[in-house]
């Protein structure tokens, strides 16, 4: 049933595809970090209409499945003339989906900044840009770094969904091996174990960073 020699023969292909998994995670996370901040700030706008629009976008993106959003980007957009490759559509979908989640994280960080800091910034006649960049954001982001780190792991575990839009990452590689040999067991199990090792190791790493962070 379980063949070790077959397992070892598939390992190089899957490890090769792991590069794509990690690359997609990092690019997607970078998009989500920036997008989340923009959404969080847009939601705080003094203009009621803008704030409402941003709230609506965040709620909508959070309430719909990543898979369907990916289909929309990859298969839906070409119908109106915008064609994206699997990698672009994939990281964009992943990034936008988690922007909505990260905006909530940023929001909690921003709301935790004491009122006095805003007032002091105003009293010192800082421009809005300087106030956000030099006073508010440094204090808002620091305490939420561990939460952001956790979302990095969550996003890493979501990347196999990108196989549905033909991106060859670990799960897709395993599926292709399975389709070729009719042996799905070894390849899929291997992918599962690799995910487990990587996400467990990174969660330990984040916990250690968190401890170090809190000490200073």
């Amino acid at each position: 049933m379980w063949s070790w020699s077959f397992t070892w023969s598939t390992l190089p292909y899957i490890l090769d595809a792991m590069k794509m998994t990690i690359l997609a995670t990092i690019v997607g996370f970078a998009i989500a970090l920036v997008g989340g901040l923009l959404l969080a700030m847009g939601r705080r706008s003094k203009n009621r209409l803008i704030s409402l629009i941003f709230t609506g976008v965040i709620e909508f993106v959070r309430s719909t499945p990543l898979l369907v959003q990916l289909y929309f980007l990859f298969y839906g957009l070409p119908a109106i003339g915008i064609s994206l490759g699997p990698f672009t559509a994939g990281v964009l979908g992943l990034g936008i989906h988690y922007s909505a989640y990260l905006s909530e994280v940023y929001r909690s960080g921003i709301e935790a900044v004491p009122r006095g800091q805003w007032e002091a910034a105003k009293a010192l006649n800082f421009t809005r840009w300087t106030m956000w960049r030099r006073i508010i954001l440094p204090q808002a982001i620091r305490p939420v770094v561990p939460v952001l780190g956790n979302y990095l792991i969550v996003m890493f575990k979501e990347t196999p969904v990108l196989s549905a839009i033909t991106l060859v990452e670990m799960l897709m590689a395993a599926k292709m091996i399975g389709a070729e040999s009719f042996r799905y067991l070894e390849a899929f199990t291997l992918v599962g174990i690799l995910f487990l090792i990587l996400s467990y190791a990174s969660s330990l790493l984040i916990r250690r960073l968190e401890l170090k962070w809190n000490r200073t």
């Binding site: 049933m1 575990k157 979501e158 990347t159 196999p160 969904v161 196989s163 799960l171 395993a174 599926k175 399975g178 042996r183 799905y184 067991l185 899929f188 199990t189 992918v191 599962g192 995910f195 487990l196 996400s199 467990y200 969660s203």
Partner: peptide, 23 residues
């Protein structure tokens, strides 16, 4: 808990549907 939180849902789904029949 660690196994099911540490691997992704889609991998578990594929494993149960495609790999388990081989066992």
């Amino acid at each position: 808990v660690e196994v099911f939180r540490g691997t992704s849902l889609i991998v578990q789904l594929f494993w149960l549907f495609y790999a388990l029949p081989l066992l």
